[in-house]
Design a protein around this nucleic acid. Sequence first.
DNA 1: TTCAACCTGACAGCAACCTGAACAGAGCGG
DNA 2: CCGCTCTGTTCAGGTTGCTGTCAGGTTGAA
Lengths: 223, 223
Amino acid sequence: MRILIVEDEPHLGSAVQERLREAGHAVDWFMTLADARAILLTMNYDVVVLDLGLPDGSGRTLLRELRRARSTVAVLITTAQDQISDRIAGLSEGADDYIVKPYDLDELSARVDAVSRRYGGGSGENEILLDDGLALDLSRHRLSRDGTEIDLTAREWAVIEALARRPGAVCSRERLEDALYGLGEEVESNAIEVFISRLRKKLGSGTIITVRGRGYRLAEPRA
Amino acid sequence: MRILIVEDEPHLGSAVQERLREAGHAVDWFMTLADARAILLTMNYDVVVLDLGLPDGSGRTLLRELRRARSTVAVLITTAQDQISDRIAGLSEGADDYIVKPYDLDELSARVDAVSRRYGGGSGENEILLDDGLALDLSRHRLSRDGTEIDLTAREWAVIEALARRPGAVCSRERLEDALYGLGEEVESNAIEVFISRLRKKLGSGTIITVRGRGYRLAEPRA
DNA sequence: TTCAACCTGACAGCAACCTGAACAGAGCGG
DNA sequence: CCGCTCTGTTCAGGTTGCTGTCAGGTTGAA
């Protein structure tokens, strides 16, 4: 999942970035509205973690711009305790959730996962059935076949999560790379293919279908 | 689909050309107004991707010339963020859409597809019914017979997309070649006939009708 | 009948893709 | 400090599937 953090406090921003990266996401972090605005034009994010009090303006401005431009990206607002009015206004302006500073990093990570699923491209379902008895539980981060659990590494999970975002739709390799590697982490090998190969070894070869020249997609359960 | 790119920035132009070619289109790329003007006299394009800030003048000049000459080609304007006035003027001068630089390539590709369908020769419909239970969904790039999907390669899709542009009308082989092969990519064999043959194998022999000496056309559903 | 246009099976080149293996770094226990 | 495991990345060689070309057959018009 590709996540944008807009947060001007260095320690907090870096801690959030690290925590979400450990969860397997591609995380970009900017400290100003201007930078955020620029990167949002070129990159499609799944979630924006947006602080309201920024040096060059309020995050609410950016939120309004996004919604006016018909962007459906999920937005999670972070705010100090004394800005309740801002928070409420943010929700009415199209934010999906808010969290009060100081917050627990695990709590933030859970909220990020939650908003990513109920907005934008997400399917909204928490449990997705794949072919051959496979069940993907996005909210609990679990994958099981006929009840027995299958362990995935962080990267493997990130790949299948990106594919499951729109089940049945083709997901390009570029898009998968965007979901795994943030700015400055780009990789120049066939890493995606290797993860696909490892996933197939764990899930069975029919689960992930190659669409030559366009990407990959998940097999849907046979009705 | 035949697409003309007018863009003076080498990296961007080449990236756009490559991306649209992967989508199965014939893509010509020129860096100056003069070259674009010359090629537009000899070749019929479906879409022009037009940058406004060019070395030998503004793209708006070319746009005005096109519309004054009653051309109905779809025009997609690309512009830097600080040229809002130019952008608005462009729309009022006959552009079909605009996109702000820097943009996401997937986004551009989607917009190109969109403007190509709502202008000029396009039928405007997103779902086209052919004979024998075949349904062609242009916006989702899907072809299905009675609900089961049929996979097409990039070239096969380009052929049927060109035929579907004016359903029922005869499309000459030259026109099909123009839609598949850009400048410098021309082929000198019966490649088109081969793709028609492959399509018939997948779709059934009655779907594409040969009009001897003039070209091909799609069969319409029996009323 | 003759000729041009068209159809289609076969095949080689090539790029995309797959996968086993090697390697570096982090973390951990002894 | 060493050895072990686990994870992620890179590389190399093999495989697959798309594409363009050709050859030989078929169709249709004059």
